[in-house]
């Protein structure tokens, strides 16, 4: 059974005022347990809106959202339980830190869940480890950390709640390339270790292609595709119409193919491209 199922959801901001704005319309999809989903789309295409709907921070103006087969808005009083199950890391989460020490800040979520002290301690330590925070940082004030470290603390704060579904809204925005790769790998490791469902929002095709099992492409508040990276990128032309670009290596392979060189287009990383080209050159030398 799907963990999350969206049925024709739509959202209008400021309905009935002069600032009315349709951010999302008629979006339907199903996400299976343990999947790693990437969401991509240009600025303002409704990605953040969509993920906020999934954990009940926004209420859809149309349609329904099911978590494990149950409509999340069936009992509006219990929406907090949905938020515990669907953890959400916001865009620029470092601005939400508030407590005296990193340790206390990470334990804010688990505390709200009403866990025991021991359980909280264990979860905080585990979450810190997963996000690559060093032990000695735990007793520091979160305001004394670097931007990248703050980001990790904020992510750890959500991971510590051990949600069934973890949503991350552009977790790598503003990090340097090394930090970005490290964070992405850690998220992927977290997913592999716990078999949790992860939803990652990003602007970068390269990032998403590296980690996601399936990609959801958004354009002007509508779902354009939901498919494996290979299938999505094979429709490169269609993607470009929505203002998105396939990863550069994929693009190169597509251009080679157009020039009549018989290479595989379903290439997502530089390594794959390298091997493919070597193979081609090898076969040419033989033939």
């Amino acid at each position: 059974m799907a963990v999350i199922k969206a049925e024709n959801i739509g959202l209008v901001y400021g309905a009935g005022t002069s600032f009315e704005k349709t951010a999302l319309s008629e979006v339907s999809f199903e996400i299976e347990k343990g999947e790693f989903i990437g969401i991509i789309g240009h600025t303002g295409s409704g990605k953040s809106t969509l993920v906020q709907l999934l954990n009940g921070l926004l209420k859809p103006t149309d349609g329904r959202i099911y978590l494990n087969g149950k409509d999340i808005w069936e009992e509006p009083k219990k929406i907090r339980n949905v938020r515990f199950k669907v953890g959400m890391v916001f865009q620029y989460p470092e601005y939400q830190l508030f407590d005296e020490t990193v340790y206390k800040d990470i334990s804010y979520g688990p505390k709200n869940m009403g866990l025991s002290e021991d359980e909280i301690d264990e979860r905080v330590k585990k979450a810190a480890e997963f996000t690559g925070l060093k032990k000695e940082l735990l007793d520091k004030s979160p305001f004394d950390l670097s931007g990248g470290e703050k980001r990790r603390v904020a992510i750890a704060g959500v991971v510590a709640m051990n949600p069934e579904v973890l949503i991350l809204d552009e977790p790598t925005a503003g990090l340097d390339p090394l930090g970005r790769d490290a964070l992405l790998s850690q998220i992927r490791d977290y997913h592999d270790a716990n078999k949790n469902t992860v939803i990652l929002v990003s602007h970068s095709m390269e990032d998403i292609a590296r980690v996601a099992d399936r990609i959801l492409v958004m354009d002007h508040g509508k779902k354009i595709m939901l498919d494996t990276p290979k299938n999505v990128f094979s429709k490169g032309r269609e993607l470009e119409k929505t203002g998105l670009r396939v990863p550069q290596v994929t693009k190169i392979m597509m251009l080679l193919k157009e020039k009549g060189i018989p290479v595989n287009q379903d290439i997502l990383t530089i390594e794959q491209a390298f091997n493919e080209i070597i193979n081609y050159l090898g076969s040419k030398a033989e033939g």
Binding site: Q52, N55, L57, R80, R83, F84, G87, M88, F90, P93, Y95, Q96, Y108, G109, N112, M113, G157, V158, M161
Partner: peptide
């Protein structure tokens, strides 16, 4: 925004 972020943490 901050309120939403903290609500997401329960």
């Amino acid at each position: 925004k901050i309120m939403n972020a903290q609500k997401a943490r329960g």
